[in-house]
Nucleic acid binder design. Structure first.
Lengths: 339, 339
DNA sequence: ATGAATGATGTAAAGGTTTACATATAGGCA
DNA sequence: TGCCTATATGTAAACCTTTACATCATTCAT
C-alpha cells in the first residue's frame, strides 16, 4: 500500500557503473556526456524505474517549479477558462500549478503566502485585484516574488497585468449598438471601486462621444456585476421612466438579469429592447434571446499571463506593464436594428 | 527583486542560543521543550522572520503535504464547486492542492504522474472516472498512491468513491414527477459507458416500477449529457411522435437543451411539458422556466473526499468503499401538475 | 616532443530539515 | 549517598539532488 523504497540516483549510478554526477548530467545536460555513457545511464534509469526526487532537486536548486494561483472565487466562470490557459502553458514548461481559493478573506490570503515563503512556489498569479494581505506590510517590499495579475489589475503596485482590453472592447460593443441605429443606450453596471467597470464605462462613453450622442445621465445605472444587480437595474429604469432602446451591460451576468427582468415583463426581445453583454460566459449562447456580447480570449489570457510570469522568473524584465488582448464581438440574437 | 537569503533554522538556533534540534522541536512538538526555551525560540523566529523550508522538510520526511487533483475538464461546472470543498478541507489541514487538467488525454494523464513519482504530491483525487493511463501497467499495482475518486467512480479498481447518490436522487426526482400526476415520463440521456447515467436511469426505472407504470421504450433517449444532446433528443421525440408529459433529464445541461428546443417550438412551458434536471448548475435558476432539479451537495462532496483521502494518507483503512451523499430536490418552475 | 586546450568523468560540498541516539541534569527513592 | 528514571537538550546522520572544482585522457598546434 505504501510506496516502495524508490530508486535514487545512486542506484542508477551503480547499475550504470558511473558516478552520480554523470547520471545527473546525463539527465539534465545530455550533450555534456559521451554517447556511450548516456546510453548506459538511460538503460539503468529504465531498469530501475528511477525518477528524480523533485524535493531534493528543489532544495538544491532553490526553486520548486510551482506557480501559486490566488483566486477569490474558483467558481467564477471567468476563472476556470483562464485557469485552463494558465495550466496548459505551465504544464508545457514543466511547471505545476497550485490553487489557493481566498474567498477575499485576508486570513486565507496571508496563509497562502506560506507557499511562497517556504519555497513551495516560485511565482504568483493574482486574480484578486490586490496584493495579498500581509505583503509589503513590514516594508519588505523587496521580498515580493515574481507575480502577474490577471482578470483584475492591481492598483498602486508595479504588478504586470494581462487581460482583455476593456476600454477598447466596450467601445466596439457600443459602436455596434450605434451601428444598429441605437441612440439611447443605457450603461448598466457603473461601480466606483471596480477598475474593470470603470474602463468599460469609459469605452462606452468614448463611443457615444465619437458618434456625437449626448448621454442621458438617467441611463447610467449602478451595479456590481451580478445577475441580481441587472434585474434591479431594469426595474429601476421603469421606475425612472427613462427607457433606452438598448442596454450595454458591464458583463454577461448583468445582461442576463436584464433579460430575465424584461422577459418577465413580457417584452418581446430583441424587438423592443436590444441587449449587449461582455465576457461571453458559457450560458450566454443558451439564454433566450441568445446574447450578443464581447468574447474574452480567456485561454489566451491564461497562456500569456503564464508566459509572462515564467519570463519574469527567468530574470527577464517585462517589456510592458500590461498586456491587453482584444475582445471579439460575438453577434447573436439579443441585438437588433432599430428605427 | 529576487528573494533575499532567507533565515534558516540555524539562524534561529544561533539567535536563541540553542541547537537546531531544539528549534525544530519547539516548532513541531512544543510540549517536548521547556517553557523558557520555547519562548526564546519563538522570539528568535519572530525576529528573523523564519519560515520552515518546505522542500527540506519534504525531502527529509518523504512527504510533501500536497494533493494532486486530476480533472478532465477544469471548466466543468460540476468541477469548480467540488474543488472549493476539496481545497477548503485541504487547506484547513495544512495541505496544498495541485491542479492537473488532463483533457482526457492519455499523455497528459501519464505526465502528471510525475508529481506522484517525484514525491511532489502525496495523494490523488480523480475526477476522470478511470485510473491515470500508465498506472498499474507494469504490474506495479502496489505502487498506487492513496487516492479517492470523485464525481465519477472508477470501475474495476479498488478506489474509494465519494459522490452523490445518483440512484436515489433519480428516484426522488422521478417520484416528484409522478406525484405531480405525470405518467408518461421520458428519460433523456441514456448512455452505455457512463456509470452516472446508468445509475440515474436505474433510479428512474425504480420509481416508475414502484408506481406501477410501464415504460414506453420510445421515451428512453440516448444522450451524452451535453446541451446539444438534449436538443437533439427533443427533436427526436417529435419525429417519433411519441411525446411524454414530462422529461427527466440525466443532468441540467441536457434539460437546458430540451427547454431551448421546446421554447423554440413555441410551446408554453411548463404548462405543456414539465422538465426535471439533475445537478443544479448555476444557470438553472436563470433559465425560463427556471429548472426544477436535484441539487448535488458539491461543497460537501469535496470536503468528504478530501477528508477521506487524508485519512487514507494517515494510514487508516476506509470503512466504506463509497460514500454517497443525498441530492436535494430543488423545486422551481419547470415542473407542474398535470391531468 | 612539449604544452595547451578540450572533453569526459569523478569527488565532495551544500542545500535545510527531522530524528535516532547520546549526553547532561534534576528528582525520587531506597 | 547512590542509583534509577524522567526530562531537556545536543550531535550527527540521513533525505537526494546539483554543481564547483579537480583529475585524467586525448587532441592539436608549435
Amino acid at each position: 500500500m505504501q510506496h516502495q523504497k524508490l530508486a535514487t540516483i545512486e542506484d542508477v549510478a551503480a547499475l550504470a557503473g558511473v558516478s552520480i554526477a554523470t547520471v545527473s548530467r546525463a539527465i539534465n545536460e545530455p550533450t555534456k556526456v559521451a554517447d556511450e555513457t548516456r546510453r548506459k545511464v538511460n538503460e539503468a534509469i529504465a531498469r530501475t524505474g528511477y525518477t528524480t526526487n523533485a524535493m531534493a532537486r528543489s532544495l538544491r536548486m532553490r526553486r520548486s517549479n510551482m506557480i501559486l494561483i490566488l483566486a477569490p472565487d474558483v467558481g467564477d466562470p471567468n476563472f476556470s477558462n483562464i485557469l485552463v490557459g494558465l495550466e496548459t502553458e505551465a504544464s508545457k514548461r514543466g511547471y505545476g500549478v497550485l490553487i489557493g481559493n481566498t474567498q477575499n478573506d485576508a486570513t486565507r490570503e496571508t496563509d497562502y503566502l506560506r507557499f511562497i515563503s517556504s519555497n513551495q512556489a516560485d511565482g504568483l498569479i493574482l486574480f484578486t485585484g490586490h496584493l495579498p494581505y500581509g505583503f509589503g506590510q513590514d516594508g519588505a517590499e523587496g521580498r515580493l516574488p515574481p507575480m502577474v495579475a490577471v482578470n483584475e489589475p492591481v492598483p498602486n503596485a508595479e504588478v504586470p497585468f494581462v487581460g482583455v482590453d476593456n476600454f477598447e472592447g466596450a467601445r466596439i460593443a457600443t459602436e455596434h449598438l450605434i451601428s444598429q441605429g441605437h441612440r439611447r443606450i443605457a450603461f448598466v453596471g457603473r461601480s466606483q471601486g471596480r477598475e474593470v467597470n470603470r474602463l468599460r464605462e469609459e469605452g462606452y462613453r468614448k463611443a457615444l462621444a465619437g458618434a456625437g450622442i449626448v448621454i442621458d445621465p438617467r441611463l447610467i445605472i449602478d451595479g456590481d456585476g451580478t445577475t441580481e444587480s441587472g434585474r434591479a437595474a431594469a426595474e429601476l429604469m421603469f421606475v425612472r421612466d427613462a427607457l433606452p432602446t438598448a442596454f450595454f451591460c458591464v458583463n454577461d451576468a448583468t445582461a442576463l438579469g436584464i433579460i430575465i427582468s424584461l422577459n418577465a415583463r413580457r417584452y418581446d426581445l430583441p424587438r423592443q429592447f436590444s441587449i449587449m453583454g461582455f465576457d461571453d460566459i458559457s450560458f450566454s449562447s443558451f439564454v433566450t434571446p441568445s446574447l450578443t456580447t464581447m468574447k474574452q480570449p480567456r485561454h489566451k489570457i491564461g497562456e500569456a499571463a503564464m508566459e509572462l510570469l515564467l519570463a519574469l522568473l527567468a530574470g527577464e524584465k517585462p517589456r510592458e506593464q500590461q498586456v491587453l488582448l482584444r475582445a471579439e464581438l460575438i453577434v447573436r440574437n439579443s441585438v437588433t436594428r432599430v428605427g
